[in-house]
């Protein structure tokens, strides 16, 4: 796993989904699902997360 969401911080707002340039993210109710085959670890979702809940490593 390279894309991690801290669920104790996440609002499920979908901001990360909106900003991901590779459509790698999907919001399914209270889960942010990352398609690791599309993720390039660019970090845009990290900067755009209002809750600072995402880590990409």
């Amino acid at each position: 796993m390279t894309h991690k969401v801290d669920k104790s911080k996440c609002f499920y707002c979908g901001g990360c989904v909106s900003l991901c340039p590779f459509t790698a993210l999907t919001l399914v109710e209270t889960n942010v699902v990352c398609d690791e085959s599309k993720c390039t670890k660019c970090g845009i979702c990290v900067k755009g997360c209002p809750a600072r809940a995402i880590r990409v490593e």
């Binding site: 979908g14 901001g15 989904v17 909106s18 900003l19 340039p21 459509t23 845009i44 755009g48 209002p50």
Partner: peptide, 26 residues
């Protein structure tokens, strides 16, 4: 779809959001 315009992007529309033109709200 709102901010999460994934299907519009899949349809080929140029609607990708950028960090520059986005405000992050709390």
């Amino acid at each position: 779809e709102g901010m999460e315009n994934t299907i519009a992007r899949k349809a080929g529309m140029k609607v990708q959001h950028t960090l520059y033109d986005t405000d992050v709200c709390y």
